[in-house]
Write a protein that binds this DNA or RNA. Structure first.
Lengths: 197, 197, 197, 197
DNA sequence: TATGAATGAGGGTTCATTCAT
DNA sequence: GATGAATGAACCCTCATTCAT
């Protein structure tokens, strides 16, 4: 039991080191040796916990994805009106998202670059959008979203979040410094619009 | 003159081939040989037109950036109200953006991954945002944007566009198929909001 | 055409170098770099002519096997009596076998050690023995081989040749020095026996 | 005493496991871990009984060689005639040889491949042949071997046995199935020849 | 004595780049 | 200019060996 705990910690340390190294230099420009040095272990040790360099990346990707699997969020907020839903949902995720910045920076470029990973993400996205579409459709009928097309709305709002994550990763000053103001800003923009009285 | 023209065409062919190969497989997983094959030339020939593989990427990046340098757009629309500006501006760029999808897919992942390129893009962004901030500030005073923070607004709107480009690159079905509807949708969302009326 | 000729020569040079290095140090203890140095080329060049280190070994194996594919030998001697057949056949092969000593030494240990190669050789042997069995059966009926079991005879005689090749490879002094006397000795032993007259 | 006995058993178990693994996959393709798994112990434990992987191989080799050191065989049969000697000697060894098939298959390829082991075997062979040559010389004078060259005879007969062992290891069907018939066949072939009345 | 996690040297292979033709 | 064979540095990964427990 102890050994297992210890082993889990090692694995997590390697992943943390890898996310730092990958985020800084990019997956391909990083060497297994650099990750090992960052983790304070020998090269070969990594292979006791991961099958390959790519497997380390996939583990990081999995870690990232696991966070999105929280259907509880939706259920809990099912009865709230749309604006409250968006407000609460965004606030909850927001710190989470930022705390994952490094892992995201480590993983996302390679996901974009690798056809297989790209396709895997596309498939995940398709599932997530299907769920969101159903939810929005339900809400759409019962009001609160105006006459907006819920299908496009889901793409646009998630694209906004994705884009802000990228600006954050790129180091854009304002997004970095005022990250915490964004949920409120977004909710206001989306629901009130710019031409509100 | 003829030689120069011919040379320019070769260079462009290589870039086109590179953008196809890089977009499909990612920059690092692509080999110079694959680009050469795609361009229908020998490996070594690429080095008559580019100093290195990285230089090819930089050329693609430059091509992408050059398109954004159109201050004319702003000048021409300087007197329009905010909504018209956004409407016209988005419509104009929209097809352009999509036509650059391949180059974007080829270049962007590596820009995210390479510290030097990331920093270069950050610097470019900073300049662009400075210009946009000034413009929005001017407009903000004269009305049309409500009480919204123009600095955050610039980041959020550009982030949305960036995010939509990525969904497009990832192959998200709705964004792919309904790309042309997005400018109108965005303008409506941003200016009217969901709870309009 | 010139290029092809040149290419074939390079390939042959690499194989020759590999057979020297493998024969001396064994396949696994030899490095690709050592083969390259022996051939006077760079490490990577080997991979322009062979897919892998193992592929080099397989090419050597193929070279060895090709020499046994001489059905002409049999046809030509079909009408000779058994002793003449053995006499002529052994003499013909004998120098050939010795000239292949190095390739044999390079390849055979690994064939024995690798399950896949071992099985491949077994299958080749099975075919060769089937042919030999048929031939011996034919001769057996028409006399000249006494009452000996032709099936066992084929295994024993070929085993003897194989064993002598191994003693040669091992550097056994007498076999090395008196190699050329062996065909006559073998024919005499096999046909006359020790207790003759 | 008990501890020592226990220790010897462990050592023997490891050797048995190693011979199975080496025979199946070859010495170099086998890992210390595979041997340990086969023996049902931990990797490190092997190093309590052997200095190195190579040391395990040498121990197997020694085990193989020890069996040949039976001068008693010769002494006991000193007064028998040549044919009886060969007959009894072969019969005695034959089952022994086959029971060692696995160890032989494990060890022999690497002996062929490793220059040091090859030379060691050559030296052992030289000693064995010196003894055999003396014996045959003695017999040769006193008759029973015809006029055959006893020096070549020793090499040829031992080569035949070696070759048959290899065919057995390779899995040649007839040798495998009719192994027990070979001593009689060999004696008959060697002493009577094929053209016997 | 036994374990097995950790080590790190070593090797096969890839591929950007060069250069003789 | 164009070619593509040749180069060799760099890197992922394996595995024999060690040693703290």
């Amino acid at each position: 039991m102890r050994g297992e705990e210890q082993s889990d910690r090692r694995r997590a340390e390697i992943l943390a080191a890898a996310s730092r190294v990958f985020a800084e230099r990019g997956y391909h420009r990083s060497t297994v040796r650099q990750v090992a040095r960052e983790a304070g272990i020998a090269d070969g040790t990594i292979y006791l916990y991961f099958r390959s360099k790519q497997d380390v990346l996939l583990a990081l990707l999995g870690e990232l994805g696991r966070l999105n699997d929280r259907p509880a969020d939706f259920a809990e907020l099912a009865t709230a009106d749309a604006r409250t839903f968006a407000d609460v949902y965004l606030r909850r995720r927001w710190r989470d998202i930022r705390s994952r910045r490094e892992v995201f920076a480590a993983v996302f470029p390679e996901v974009l670059a690798d056809p297989a990973l790209r396709e895997a993400l596309r498939a995940r996205l398709a599932l997530a959008y299907a769920a969101a579409d159903a939810e929005l459709e339900r809400r759409g009928r019962s009001g609160g979203l105006g006459s907006s097309d819920p299908v496009l709305l889901a793409r646009v709002t998630s694209a906004t979040v994705l884009g802000l994550m990228l600006l954050d990763v790129l180091g854009e000053g304002v997004v970095r410094e005022r990250w915490d103001e964004l949920p409120v800003f977004l909710t206001s923009l989306w629901f009130d619009g710019l031409q509100r009285r």
